[in-house]
Design a protein around this nucleic acid. Structure first.
Lengths: 149, 149
DNA sequence: CTAGCTGCAAAGCGTTTGCACGATG
DNA sequence: CATCGTGCAAACGCTTTGCAGCTAG
């Protein structure tokens, strides 16, 4: 994986030190391959090195966020989800009933973003968006309930 | 305002008791005419009746949410914004730089919602949506900075 | 009368911060 | 060797909960 090397470079070039903790958090983040919370990440890193502190995780995530290496999303569960910043923009459909997360691509949101910028002069950040609602299964289940009652 | 009467009816019909606290929180919420946090609401209610507790506010909001009389939105500031459920759906553009909140109507999001439902079978709740980004002024300011550096 | 609501206090949770030690560049 | 990052512990802010008394229906 040369990507780790690249990332190390980005961090160093930004004037930050490259500590083992940062490398581990970084690697854990990339291997997670999706959304992780800060404490998920802590758990993963602690499997190898039990002495990392949650505050280090937060501080690292903060740094990586500034460097645009991670994105931060509020999944509506009270805590915050972090994700390795992929190049492709993508969005999530989050089911408020069962918690399922589905991914959608950006076409539709691009159109929305364009409309908003043109109309309001507001430049929306639509790189990573969370849309809440009911997934196919849960919305079917709800229809059932309604017809039962 | 007969709307207060209507709301009282909704609450009572749902099998909940109608206490003075609930009425005051309710009224405060309607008079706020926009987003309020739980502690905003507490402050407003306490102007008339200083003994209400924040927990009562949360409990009331929880009840009202279940009755779909208020909506809950995460504004990305760490706390949660509540708003009287208006009939018209509307959405917010929230500037991550200056915190300005602008309102947009639902047309564009309707189209998005339709697309998603058709394509993924996911039924999104797009009644009240928060879109983060840079407002006109802040995005101009950022352009300036970039050309300076 | 009794189910359900209230105020109070305390705990819970994710997150942030102060500090002295330790490691990086 | 100076600076920055770390671990630890404590604080933080928002939200939730347990409990005894009170009140609306």
């Amino acid at each position: 994986m040369s990507c780790e090397q690249d990332t190390a470079g980005v961090i160093r070039r930004a004037g930050h030190k490259l500590t083992p903790q940062r490398m581990m958090i970084l690697t854990a983040l990339r291997h997670a391959g999706g959304h992780v919370t800060a404490s998920d990440l802590l758990g993963r890193v602690q499997r190898d090195y039990p002495y990392v502190d949650i505050s280090t995780v937060y501080r690292t995530l903060h740094t990586l966020k500034q460097l645009r290496l991670v994105t931060e999303t509020d999944m509506g569960t009270g805590d915050t989800a972090y994700e390795w910043a992929r190049s492709e923009r993508h969005h999530h459909l989050i089911c408020t009933a069962c918690g399922a997360v589905e991914e959608i691509n950006h076409e539709h949101l691009d159109r929305l973003g364009g409309d908003i910028e043109r109309e309001y002069g507001f430049r929306p950040v639509l790189d990573h968006f969370a849309i809440f609602g009911l997934c196919r299964d849960c919305s079917r289940a709800e229809d059932q309930e309604e017809s039962d009652s």
